[in-house]
Design a protein around this nucleic acid. Structure first.
Length: 254
DNA sequence: ATGGTGGATTTTCCA
């Protein structure tokens, strides 16, 4: 099963690029983040016409997540289901075939020390607890999305520049490690131990042209999914050409 | 400390 995570930075603005990617990469499951639209504005018709089932959890203007699948999407849960008041649409999960899929758009956090930063750390702990409830460790499961956190300095183009900055600070990395502590493993690192592989490049500083990026989009997988992993790669072609997202898709084959 | 670009929505917020 080919599973993709991709922060599309508006599904409506990115629809031509999304369709091009679906036809080229031929995934089975696609987890989208930052869809940036209400469910009624999601481009359901063109995607269903191409054979995709869609489960959406959106809001106006910001955030928003969706799961696309060639097969049946079952047992959909929207949100973290922990009783906390939360108006932001950041996580959707569902069973697709024999794989539990959890798709998350983690809070960005703005800057270290900001209110949004503290909220990010709390939110990552809530995501960890949700993943623990939602995934059975001896079955196949994938917790993926835009985590807005690097694992370590191998994921950073300029570690000195980013030292203890947002997306790279020690508390954020500890909170991300809370998910791997459950027994989930970073799919990409199974195949690529070296640094220099990135999934996001800042538009503002022309990061892609400078190869100045960060690896912040991840697939964390349960042990059976990890054992069955055959490949994991970053689709740089989707970050090139006209009108790309600022993130590239990450593709895992299991 | 600031600005650069891009998206949604509305001359500003968020990333």
């Amino acid at each position: 099963m080919r599973i993709v995570t991709w922060n599309v930075n508006s599904v409506r603005a990115r629809l031509p690029r999304l369709i091009e990617f679906l036809e080229r990469a031929r995934p089975d499951v696609v987890c989208l983040q930052e869809t940036k639209c209400l469910d009624e504005a999601f481009p359901l018709d063109p995607l269903e016409d191409l054979g995709w089932s869609c489960a959406t959890f959106g809001q106006k203007t910001y955030n928003g997540v969706a799961i696309l699948a060639r097969g049946r999407i079952e047992d959909v849960v929207r949100g973290l289901d922990d009783g906390v008041e939360d108006p932001e649409a950041r996580v959707i999960s569902a069973q697709v075939g024999d794989v539990m899929i959890v798709n998350a758009y983690v809070v960005n956090g703005q800057e270290v020390g900001a209110d949004k930063y503290r909220y990010k750390l709390e939110w990552l702990n809530r995501l960890r607890d949700f993943a623990a409830r939602r995934c059975v460790l001896d079955e196949k499961g994938v917790v993926c999305g835009d985590f807005n956190v690097t694992f370590d300095d191998r994921d950073v183009h300029d570690p000195a520049l980013w030292h203890e900055k947002i997306l790279c600070s020690t508390p954020e990395r500890r909170a991300l490690a809370g998910l791997t502590s459950l027994g989930l493993k970073d799919a990409f690192r199974k195949f690529h131990e070296e640094g220099g592989h990135y999934t996001w490049w800042d538009f503002r500083t022309k990061g892609y042209q400078r190869q100045a990026g960060l690896r912040i989009d991840h697939l964390l997988v349960t042990p059976p999914a990890y054992e069955s992993l055959r490949a994991c790669s970053i689709d740089l072609a989707a970050r090139e050409g006209p009108g790309p997202s600022d993130h590239a898709p990450v593709i895992a084959d299991l």
